[in-house]
């Protein structure tokens, strides 16, 4: 047995995954919101679902470096799984319903990933877009099951644990349920990104050719990552359908895919908490501005994106890190 190496870099890597105290803040805030704003739990639920969706994107985009415009395909797959099963009277139980949503979305992710991830760059971007558009068209066509353009509403979702009703007017159950599911998924993703698997995803993001040259089965890793991300996006879609008791074509559209991309990049991708920051910033702003001045909102959002792309490539958390770094260097 050799001695462990005692070096600051080794220690930093060995302790990277440790929980920091500040990591409790988002969860405390989320709980605080529940008690402080009982009238705005619908808004809060939407926010939490968005965070979950953005986290699913962070896994593929932020960690594995797959630039996709089609993440809503999986959100929609999950949402329609819940919607169709409930509407057809096949399945109403929410938690197992989410598992089914995850399963279906994962299957879509696995199937499409297996073929799409052979390509890169522009072609990959196009194909993610096409896959999502194809799914949207398919959902539109199968209106006997999906309700077509109008979607499915008044979904009969069974009470949680057989006791807690999903009341659309007082979404207390929804809020806590979504928060719990978000927490579980977040813990899973956090574990993933700090694992050796997550480290190899970063490697693929940074230099795919080198990953081949160290003997990594790059495509297999990417497909696996894509599938897991799809499953989580499916959970987000499924829970969105349950919480709102409806599902429509919008869950599958370019709008939703672009929005989640914007949210993630706004917060900072590849940083785990970027999804939280981005979702809070975006959803709050859009909640107040987009209703009143939709056009000005779009203009401002466009400007913001241009500025981020040109000057602040790592989002809000990236700016924060950049501000912190010179201070660190001066200190050390």
């Amino acid at each position: 047995m050799t001695e462990p190496v005692d070096h600051p870099a080794a220690r930093a890597l060995a302790e990277r995954h440790r929980l920091r105290i500040w990591e409790a803040i988002p969860w405390l805030l989320a709980l605080g919101f529940f008690f402080a704003f009982p009238k705005h739990l619908g808004f809060g639920t939407e926010l939490l679902v968005t965070v979950l969706f953005a986290i699913s994107l962070d896994l593929v985009l932020g960690y594995a470096g797959i630039v996709t415009l089609g993440q809503a395909a999986f959100f929609g797959a999950g949402a329609y799984t819940v919607g169709i099963l409930a509407k057809q009277g096949i399945w109403h139980e929410p938690i197992t319903g989410l598992l089914l949503a995850a399963l279906v979305a994962a299957a879509v992710g696995f199937g499409s990933g297996l073929v799409l991830l052979r390509t890169q760059g522009l072609t990959l971007l196009m194909l993610t877009l096409c896959t999502m558009a194809l799914l949207e068209e398919a959902a539109n066509l199968a209106h006997d099951y999906t309700g077509g353009f109008d979607g499915l509403d008044s979904l009969p979702i069974a009470p949680l644990f057989g006791r807690f009703e999903f009341n659309p007017l007082y979404p207390t159950t929804q809020y806590l349920y979504v928060l719990a599911v978000l927490f579980v998924c977040f813990v899973f993703v956090r574990m993933l990104v700090y694992s050796p698997f997550g480290q190899s995803l970063r490697g693929i993001r940074e230099n795919m050719l080198r990953m081949h040259a160290v003997g990594a089965p790059v495509r297999g890793r990417l497909v696996l990552c894509y599938t897991l991300s799809a499953a989580i996006a499916g959970v987000a879609g499924g829970i969105w359908a349950q919480a709102n008791a409806y599902v429509n074509l919008g869950t599958l559209g370019l709008d939703r895919a672009a929005t989640v991309l914007i949210i993630l990049v706004l917060g900072g991708h590849g940083r785990l908490y970027g999804a939280f920051i981005g979702a809070v910033a975006y959803i709050s702003l859009s909640h107040f501005l987009a209703r009143i001045y939709p056009t000005a909102w779009q203009l401002g959002l466009g400007l913001l994106l241009v500025v981020i792309a040109l000057f602040a490539r790592n989002g809000i958390l990236g700016i924060a890190a950049a501000l912190r770094r010179p201070a660190h260097r001066a200190a050390s």
């Binding site: 056009t295 779009q298 203009l299 466009g302 400007l303 994106l305 500025v307 981020i308 040109l310």
Partner: peptide, 26 residues
């Protein structure tokens, strides 16, 4: 943005489209 990440190009041009759409609407 020539030679930059695809992601930056995607964001930049989406932002530009949004601005175009909003300006014309206004």
């Amino acid at each position: 943005l020539y030679g930059a990440d695809e992601l930056d190009q995607v964001l930049f041009t989406i932002g530009l489209v949004f601005m175009m759409i909003a300006s014309v609407t206004l």
